[in-house]
């Protein structure tokens, strides 16, 4: 965890007010609104939320991989000292795969089926002028061994379909590491994997991060993944960050009612009553088409009151050093609500 008080290193990525709009036939859809965060060198920043909350599209905007109907704007979107939003395709392509790389969700589809692993690993290295083909192969073998693939030099000649899902995701991770990036965006890196492989893949990511000092943006809907890997978390709902906090603090003192709901939805082994039902958050994510007014979560919120629908916009409130939440209710009453849900146990 980065220590903010001693020396505050310059963030590797600094995003302010990132807005992504999708032009749909039925109107403009605000996929993200006012998304702001800083990512420090060497830290893992998790963005968590339900599907459709804008967590993936916000990162796609950083990579310049938005679909054609999408438009992104931001007050600032500075990566490694350079403004990357609105950069020409040519300039952006020098950054992508080089200092900023990405791990996609589904290793079954993110490797090209008609080229060998070796070909796909080496091309990015050669593309970014890191060396010739022989050096690229050397690097690929080194990284494949590092991500735990045995017999790496023979595996270079394998095609994706000859590897299992877990191995393929290791290949994808190795591919993201080829040019020694400063930041990796991992979009649901374990969602498509078997549960047994998930933890090992996460552990691998954590190891690599320590070893090579990378920063990671971890996009996930799984709070378990967040807890095991990240330093800080942003919880997104309906295109907005509703709470951001250091991971330990988020789990200890979840402040926003949505965060509280999410945490309550994690099934645990220690439930006293085995017959108790799993928690869910009632209701549906609101439509994001057109301008939004008030708090987006109010229709599902147990603590909502009349003001929630009246205000134009709910502002982020700071509570403590690195903890902020987007709710009209004061911190005390929210924490009291959380403690109340859990009786005396918390």
């Amino acid at each position: 965890m980065a220590d903010m008080t001693d020396a505050c290193p310059a963030p590797i990525l600094s995003v302010r007010n990132l807005e992504v709009t999708l032009r749909t036939p039925v109107g403009d859809l605000q996929a993200t609104r006012g998304v702001s965060y800083d990512i420090l060198p060497g830290e893992t920043f998790a963005i968590v939320g339900e599907s459709g909350c804008g967590k993936s599209i916000a990162s796609m905007a950083l990579m310049g991989l938005l679909p054609r109907i999408a438009h992104a704007s931001a007050d600032r979107c500075r990566f490694d000292g350079q403004e990357i939003l609105g950069l020409s395709r040519r300039k952006l392509s020098r950054i992508r795969g080089n200092t900023l790389s990405m791990i996609f969700q589904d290793p079954m589809t993110s490797l090209n089926p008609v080229y060998t692993i070796g070909d796909q690993l080496t091309e990015v290295f050669v593309r970014h002028g890191k060396g010739n083909r022989a050096q690229a192969r050397e690097r690929a073998v080194f990284l494949l061994e590092r991500v735990g693939i045995k017999n790496a030099s023979a595996r270079l000649n394998a095609y994706p379909h000859q590897l299992s899902g877990g191995l393929r995701q290791r290949v994808v991770i190795a591919m993201a590491m080829m040019c020694s990036p400063k930041l990796i965006i991992a979009d649901e890196p374990t969602t498509a994997l078997d549960v047994t492989v998930q933890m090992r893949t996460l552990a691998l990511l954590a190891e690599l991060q320590k070893e090579f000092g990378l920063s990671i943006i971890l996009i996930t809907h799984d709070l378990g993944v967040v807890a095991s890997l990240s330093d800080r978390v942003a919880v997104m709902y309906a295109g907005q960050i509703v709470e951001t906090a250091p991971t330990a603090q988020l789990f200890a003192d979840p402040t926003h009612p949505y965060t509280q709901g999410l945490i309550r939805c994690i099934p645990s082994y220690g439930t006293p009553d085995p017959d108790s039902e799993l928690s869910t958050i009632p209701g549906m994510v609101p439509s994001l088409i057109g301008r939004q007014k008030g708090c987006a979560f109010r229709n599902r919120c147990p603590l909502a009151f009349s003001d929630c629908g009246q205000v134009a916009e709910v502002a982020l409130q700071k509570t403590g050093e690195d903890h902020a939440y987007r709710c009209l209710r004061p911190h005390d009453s929210l924490i009291a609500h959380w403690r109340g849900l859990h009786g005396e146990s918390v």
């Binding site: 990579m63 952006l92 392509s93 795969g97 996609f104 969700q105 589904d106 993110s110 089926p113 990015v124």
Partner: peptide, 12 residues
């Protein structure tokens, strides 16, 4: 996805 990946790798 593999074409998205190719873009993400910064290929021409």
């Amino acid at each position: 996805d593999y074409v998205k990946m190719a873009w993400a790798k910064g290929l021409n």
